[in-house]
Design a protein around this nucleic acid. Structure first.
Length: 479
RNA sequence: GCCGCCAUCGUCUAGUGGCCCAGGACGGUACCUUCUCAAGGUACAAAUCGGGGGUUCGAAUCCCCCUGGCGGUACCA
């Protein structure tokens, strides 16, 4: 069997790895790995105007954070280097010229202004905006080689190379996820292949690289469906075998438009900074358009990458564009936090707040108290701040409770063995002896100690804080 | 406009002709537990399977039309 090779091809034009790319990467990764194949990352940096500095590094870093480690990439190299398109310019040029030589592509000298004008006219006539083929006619009128057309022009004049799409027939392909899809050739535009700055467009570069890098399955998002016939034409003109295509859904905003940074957090870094765990995000993403089969699994929506690999089938992905639901992601993240063992969770929290340099001793003790109370790592500090600093303000005015707090301080002073159990017992006895209303009393204590109406369990918190500190905090209300 | 893809609870989905007057999960509501909040448990509400036609003894499941949503329509990817 032919070896399976998949790839993702992010372009470094944004802040970081886009969550939609994470989704595509996940599917490509799973599919490659379950077939003992290779997962490749290729950086598509052919748009010089939109290039964002540092973007590539952050994309690669985020991919590592998710554990979706590529077998070949600009970082780790591989047998088909380089994996950055800006370093492969000669290749694209070579094949573009070959297409020109065969008459499957031609030089175009039209200016952006003319193109804009042309489209305007077409639109006003209700026609689909497409290149009108002016330069193609000129080049065919000239019986010399199409390349000769270039010589007719002044040396410095800018040109592009366009794909010569036949105006008859149809181009079709079978998509693993969607079945047969076909397009009429006469509706396919003479796409620019090589830009005037010498860089290829996506359409040329993707075909050349996928062929040269022996990509077996092109698994990408739905937005590429309508350019696929252009790619197929290029494969055919160059006499190359077609890869297998699979177009997954694109993630949607809650309003169902294509997931965008204006309406939803999209950068991997945002999720990291919010304290989402990479495993949880991947698990959540896996559920977009796919679900574990009823047989062979317990039907749980919580599963590891390994489990997913056992059951995943590319053809089972649903083509419907799913809305991204942050609420469900948060729930799932909470599930993962609760599943994490305490030492590991402590390490994650310490790392998450590394610039704050939280004392490990206290963090360690608080873990059991907050584990089932946080959904994201960023929920930790708001809940536990009182362990590290005395409350700066109190949510309720405690002055009317001063006598009770004073009694408590006195009573607590007699506790010899400062444990949660003993503290609890001592307080219960005081409540019984004095006939306090217990919910009021404990709320007052809670606020006195933590500053807030909502807190981790009181007794345990007081144990961690220590007798001296607890009494000091109580004293501030009656001295 | 044109081309293409898609269509089951608010959301993610199960479901491939009878087991479905549609199952699960998130979210919501109520109750239990409880010194707060969570977590956990139990229950409830929530889809006339977008609409209309077929095919069939029988359709969420197959076919057609309509509608709607989305994507594409760049010297962006």
């Amino acid at each position: 069997m032919k070896s399976i090779r998949t790839r993702i091809a992010p372009s470094p034009t944004g802040d970081d790895l886009h969550i939609g790319n994470v989704y595509t990467a996940l599917i490509n990764y799973i599919f490659a790995k379950q077939n003992k194949g290779k997962f490749i990352v290729r950086i598509e940096d052919t748009d010089r105007t939109r290039l964002v500095k540092g973007s590539e590094e952050r994309i690669l870093k985020s991919l590592r954070w998710f554990g979706l480690d590529p077998d070949e990439s600009p970082e780790v190299g591989g047998p088909y280097s380089p994996y950055r398109q800006s370093e492969r310019l000669e290749l694209y040029k070579k094949y573009a010229l070959e297409l020109v030589k065969q008459g499957h592509a031609y030089y175009c000298f039209c200016t952006p202004q003319r193109l804009e004008q042309m489209r305007k006219e077409q639109q006003s006539k209700g026609l689909p905006p497409m290149y009108d083929g002016l330069c193609k006619q000129l080049s065919t009128k000239n019986p010399a080689s199409p390349a000769g057309r270039q010589e007719l022009r002044t040396k410095n004049e800018k040109y592009v190379i366009r794909l010569n799409v036949p105006n008859v027939g149809t181009t079709q392909f079978t998509d693993i996820i969607r079945g047969k899809i076909s397009f009429e050739n006469k509706l396919i535009d003479d796409q620019v292949l090589l830009k005037s700055d010498g860089f290829p467009t996506y359409h040329l570069a993707v075909v050349v690289d996928d062929y040269l890098m022996k990509i077996s399955h092109v698994i990408r998002a739905e937005e590429w469906i309508s350019s696929t016939p252009k790619h197929i034409l290029i494969y055919q003109f160059l006499g190359w075998p077609l890869p297998i295509f699979a177009h997954g859904p694109i993630l949607r905003n809650p309003d169902r438009s294509k997931l965008s940074k204006r309406k939803n957090p999209v950068w991997a870094s945002w999720y990291r900074e919010q304290g989402f765990l990479p495993e949880a995000i991947l698990n959540y993403l896996a559920l977009m358009g796919w679900s574990p089969p009823a047989s062979g699994t317990d039907g749980s929506e919580i599963f590891t990458l390994d489990e997913m690999m056992k059951h995943f089938k590319l053809e089972d992905i649903k083509p419907v564009g799913p809305a991204f639901d942050l609420k469900k992601l948060e729930w799932m993240n909470g599930e993962y936090i609760r599943k994490t063992d305490n030492p590991k969770l402590m390490a994650q929290i310490l790392d998450f707040y590394k610039e704050k340099k939280l004392p490990e001793r206290i963090v360690q003790k608080t873990i059991p108290l907050i584990k089932e109370r946080i959904k994201k790592l960023s929920d930790y500090l708001p809940l536990t701040e009182f362990f590290f600093n005395r409350p700066a303000k109190y949510e309720v005015d405690l002055s009317p409770k001063s006598p009770q707090l004073s009694q408590l301080a006195q009573s607590l002073n007699s506790v010899e063995n400062w444990t949660a159990d003993n503290i609890g017992k001592n307080m219960q006895e005081l409540v019984a002896k004095k006939g306090y209303k217990s919910s009021d009393f404990f709320m007052a204590v809670r606020i006195a100690i933590t500053g807030k109406k909502i807190s981790p369990p009181l007794n345990e918190s007081m144990e961690i804080l220590g007798k001296e500190e607890v009494i000091t905090r109580l004293k501030s209300f009656f001295i």
